[in-house]
Amino acid sequence: MKFRTLLRHLREGCKNIIRNGWMSFASISSIFISLFLLGAFMLLALNVNNFASSVESKVEIRVFLQLDIDKAKMDEVENKIRLIPEVKKVTLVTKEEGLEELRKNLSDEGLLDGYDDASNPLPDSFTVEVFKPQSVSNAATQIEALNTGDETAPITSVKYGEGKIETLFKITNAVRTIGLVIVLALTVTAMFLISNTIKVTIVARRREIGIMKLVGATNAFIRWPFFIEGALIGMIASILTTVVLLVSYAQFVKVTQEGLGLMMLSLVSFQQVGLEISGVLIGLGTLIGIWGSTISIRKYLKV
C-alpha cells in the first residue's frame, strides 16, 4: 500500500465517524454502557477480593503454654516455632498481658476483680502469624508436634479457629470465583452487544460497500477505513468510560472513607487500580471496535 493511500484511509476513517454521526453515536454509547458495567463490576470484584484477603490475613494461631513454664523453656519453644517455614511472626503474650486483654474484652463486668498478677489464672501464650493464611492449619499441626519428644510437654493447646477457618476460606474462594465468572460473562456480553451495534451500522452501509466494489476497490482498500473507524470508535468510547468510571470511583472512595467513616471496610484506592482498569477497558474497547467492524464487513465484501 502506498503511503498516501494509508493517509487517505486514516482521513476517511475519521471523516466516516462524523459523516455517520448517529451511527457512531450509537456505537460509542453501546460500548460506553457495556464497558461501564464491566468496569464497575471489576472494581466491585477487586474490592471483594481485597476484603477477602484482609479477612484472611487476620487469621492467627494462639499457642498456650504450661502455667508453670520457665523463661528458658519459653524461649526454646518460641525459637522452635520461629523455625517452622510457614511462620511469619511470633509474639509473646505474657499472662499479665493476657489478663489485661481479657479485662478489656469483658469491659467493666467486675468478673475478674478477684484476680491480680499473683493469682492470675491465665497461661503465657504466643500469637503466631503465618505467611499464607491457607497454611495456618499445617503450621498449627507442626506447632503441636513440638510437644512430642519433650517430656515436659510445654504446649497445652494450639487454637486457630479450626473448622471456622476452613469455612471462611471456602467462602472467600467462592466469592472470588463468582466475581471472576461474572466479569468474564460481562466481557463476553459486552463484546456481543458492541459487535452487534457495529454490525447494524455497517448493514446500513452495505450500499456504500457495493458502490466501492463496483468502481473497482479491492477488499483491502474497502476494509481499511472501516478498520480505522472501528478502532477509533472503540478507543473514544473506552477512554470516555475509563474517565467517567475512575473519576466517579475516586469520588466514591473519598466520600465513603472520609465522610461516612467506614474505615474498617477499606476500599481499594484509585491509585492501586486506576492503571489496570484503564488498561483493560481501553484495550478491550479498541479490540472490540476493530473486531466488530472487521467481522461485520467481511460478509459484504463477497459481492
Binding site: R19, G210, I211, K213, L214, V215, G216
Partner: peptide, 23 residues
C-alpha cells in the same frame, strides 16, 4: 476473486437509481 477489482476499473457502470454515496 482477487483480480475482479482490476477488471472493473476498466468498466464504468451507470444505474437507473444513480447509486451515489449520499454523504
Amino acid at each position: 476473486p482477487r483480480k475482479i477489482p482490476f477488471v472493473r476499473r476498466n468498466i464504468g457502470v451507470i444505474f437507473q437509481d444513480f447509486r451515489l454515496l449520499p454523504k
